[in-house]
């Protein structure tokens, strides 16, 4: 059975079609959610929410894009919105924790490259980070990202360019790693 047929059957309330669509796309959706969230339980929550929304609103899927791209766009929105809520909560928590953590002697421990890279990606502006994750880590094309985020593909390209530039600046201490 083709994907459009599955979509149509899911629209008509067919559980098995919904399950088939879920099976076909859950890994991809979970990957996106996990890339954004970085935590298993959050990624699971976001993935679940993505599919619930998708199946609840499946009649609004017009078939202009691939079903996977449509799901990807929902997953991105759900993850970003979910993370905003989590961040607001955690910012308050972090403030409290920081009060207890006094820097003992000002000795700065240089984190390794992976840690610095992770932090640099975390600190990217939301738009840059979104495009970077979808393009460089998850392999979506600029056209797909454009459709997912509602931006022009050129905008996606420029966001990615800026994201990479910013990461390079942030990691300039490690320039030897890629220059060699």
């Amino acid at each position: 059975m083709t994907e459009p047929q599955l979509v149509q059957r899911a629209r008509d309330g067919d559980h098995s079609a919904a399950r088939a669509l879920y099976d076909a796309h859950v890994d991809r959706v979970f990957r996106i959610c996990y890339r954004f969230a970085g935590e298993d339980h959050l990624a699971q929550d976001f993935t679940q929410e993505t599919f619930v929304r998708a199946f609840t609103k499946i009649e609004t899927f017009r078939g202009e894009a691939k079903f996977g791209t449509w799901l990807g766009s929902i997953a991105t929105t759900v993850s970003l919105n979910g993370l905003r809520k989590v961040k607001r909560f955690r910012t308050r928590e972090t403030d409290l924790v920081d009060d207890f953590r006094a820097a003992p002697s000002g000795i700065a421990i240089e984190p390794d490259l992976d840690e610095r890279l992770s932090r640099a990606v975390d600190d990217l502006p939301e738009g840059y980070r979104t495009v970077f994750i979808l393009h460089d880590l998850e392999g979506y094309t600029h056209e797909e990202i454009g459709r997912m985020l509602g931006i022009q593909s050129g905008t996606s390209k420029s966001q990615l360019f800026r994201a990479r530039n910013r990461l390079r600046d942030e990691l300039s201490d490690f320039a030897g790693e890629w220059a060699s």
Partner: peptide, 11 residues
């Protein structure tokens, strides 16, 4: 949020 929101996806 608006810029990051999906395009043509009426969620």
């Amino acid at each position: 949020s608006f810029r990051a929101d999906t395009d043509g996806v009426p969620v």
